[in-house]
């Protein structure tokens, strides 16, 4: 998996692959958000949020059930923004005020295997 590369036109996300690229569940992304600085979350958001449509226009051309390795990596990185955007657009900080740290929450999609 280490040698999988992002599709070349999305190389701008390369700096964020280490943080988000290997996370497999929403809870792992939530945990990651808690451990990143707000500055790092903002940098990720600034790079990706304005280009979401471009990313998904590209991903639309693949079968969601059979993403090739590079596109699967791209989607995993992009899913990181579901957490990072909460910190950047809503909370103004990585962690929820007063919540336990580290905090994990079990999240199960019943009958669907999320990426």
């Amino acid at each position: 998996m280490n040698h999988v590369q992002l599709p070349p036109q999305f190389a701008f996300l390369e700096p964020f692959v280490d943080d988000w690229g290997s996370l497999a569940t929403q809870d792992e992304r939530y945990r990651k958000r808690q451990d990143l600085s707000q500055a790092k979350l903002e940098a990720f958001h600034a790079a990706l949020a304005p280009r979401l449509e471009e990313v998904f226009t590209y991903l639309d051309t693949f079968d969601p059930a059979a993403l090739p390795a590079a596109e699967a990596l791209l989607f995993r990185v992009v899913l990181g923004l579901t957490e990072a955007s909460q910190a950047v657009e809503i909370l103004g900080q990585p962690r929820i005020p007063h919540a336990p740290y580290p905090h994990t929450v079990n999240m199960e999609w019943v009958g669907y295997q999320p990426h």
């Binding site: 991903l59 639309d60 989607f75 579901t82 909460q86 809503i90 007063h98 905090h103 999240m107």
Partner: peptide, 25 residues
């Protein structure tokens, strides 16, 4: 679609954060 999975994951994160606020308090 992957768009919908992203949107639902985003709504999940937002909903969870609200409940976590209630639980934290």
């Amino acid at each position: 679609t992957l768009r919908e999975e992203y949107a639902m994951a985003s709504t999940l994160a937002a909903t969870r954060d609200v409940v976590v606020e209630d639980m934290a308090m």
